[in-house]
């Protein structure tokens, strides 16, 4: 394998790790944010009667 292919491999690896790493983080914590968002809207509904 040439040096060029090796360099692009390392860059790809970093890019892919960052993508799937951030995706895993956002998927786990996003669920909590989503639940909170919907709960707050429901509370607003009760308060305003909408």
């Amino acid at each position: 394998m040439s040096m060029g292919a090796l360099i692009w491999f390392v860059i790809f690896l970093i890019g892919a790790l960052l993508f799937f790493g951030v995706a895993a983080y956002a998927a786990i914590n996003g669920m909590r944010d989503l639940r909170e968002l919907l709960t707050r809207v429901k509370k607003t509904d009760k308060r305003t009667g909408l």
Partner: peptide, 23 residues
Amino acid sequence: RFVEDLSGYMVAGRRVKVSLGIA
């Protein structure tokens, strides 16, 4: 059921947090 007004319809009431925003 969660749409209350124009801001709710167009920008989800401006209540989106970091992780959900990223997703």
